[in-house]
């Protein structure tokens, strides 16, 4: 890998999402300052940085939950400055959350079925009857959801209310819910936080499988540097809302600014 950036560019295809000069602030607090990077189709893109670097805010901007004060976001060739979260969802951006944001009162199955909402079209009339087309639609999507349940090996907890599940499984169900949307771009906010070694390995395998076999583009935030370096194709490093490095894991690892940020200046 003599010219890593170019090599990656060749294998990964065109740009799926480009963030261009985005700044975001809450009142006086600057969360993100003039950050630009891109995500290419089919790659695993990691966003790393110390706590409070603006990583989650960046994801919130990408899927339209926060509106940046400055900058543009180009997704699938369309440039926008603001977008509603449901629009992002309907264009194929799915995500998971740092603190599990499952629908706690619903079963695993129902949670994942919610991910299919956008693809179900039968209206109130047929829903009232739960018969004929509505039932066929329900069964079709159930079949798809069952595939995801198989893939994530959570068959046994299908009908358990998610509020009762242990943390690791909740994270897995949340991934399932995002997958049910058949996203083109999957945003994972610390998918492995608080997991033990074994659970982390499982989660890594799911992420790699998704990327390899289904071609899903993935952007992930993760604190476990080992995982990030192994999984990702390219890495963006944020610190205090600024981008300080961008490149392949090897490049980033060698970058003096990154080392300063993680180990402190004058290490």
């Amino acid at each position: 890998m003599s010219g890593p950036k170019d090599a990656v560019g060749e294998t990964m295809g065109e740009t799926l999402l480009a963030v261009d000069g985005v700044s975001l602030g809450f009142g006086g607090v600057k969360a993100i300052t003039d950050v630009s990077f891109d995500i290419r189709k089919g790659e695993i893109r990691a966003i790393i940085g110390p706590n409070g670097a603006g990583k989650t805010s960046m994801l919130n901007v990408i899927n339209g939950f926060y509106h940046p004060q400055q900058g543009r976001i180009t997704y699938k060739g369309q440039t926008r400055s603001r977008m509603r979260p449901y629009q992002a969802a309907s264009q194929g951006i799915a995500r998971t959350f740092q603190n599990v944001a499952l629908f706690r009162g619903m079963s695993t199955l129902d949670n994942i079925m919610v991910g299919r909402t956008l693809r179900m079209h039968r209206g109130l009339f047929w829903q009232m009857l739960r018969f004929g087309p509505a039932m066929r639609e329900e069964i079709d999507h159930r079949r798809h959801v069952e595939d995801i349940i198989d893939f994530l090996q959570i068959e046994a907890i299908r009908k358990t209310p998610v509020g009762k599940l242990p943390y690791g499984l909740q994270k897995r169900v949340e991934l399932g819910r995002a997958l049910a949307m058949e996203p083109e771009l999957l945003l994972l906010d610390e998918p492995m936080a608080g997991m033990n070694m074994e659970e982390k390995e499982d989660m890594c395998r799911y992420i790699l499988d998704l990327n390899r076999h289904f071609g899903t583009t993935i952007a992930l935030i993760e604190h476990d540097i080992g995982v990030v370096m192994d999984l990702s194709d390219r890495v963006v490093v944020l610190e205090y809302g600024h981008k300080i490095a961008d490149g392949t894991p090897e490049e980033v690892k060698a970058d003096p600014k990154v080392i300063d940020a993680y180990l402190g200046v004058g290490h």
Binding site: Y86, S90, A101, F103, G105, D110, T117, M181
Partner: peptide, 14 residues
């Protein structure tokens, strides 16, 4: 139920 349990996540589900 999704709106009830976690409206933000529901929005991001579309």
């Amino acid at each position: 139920m999704a709106v009830r349990d976690m409206d933000i996540a529901a929005q991001l589900m579309g």
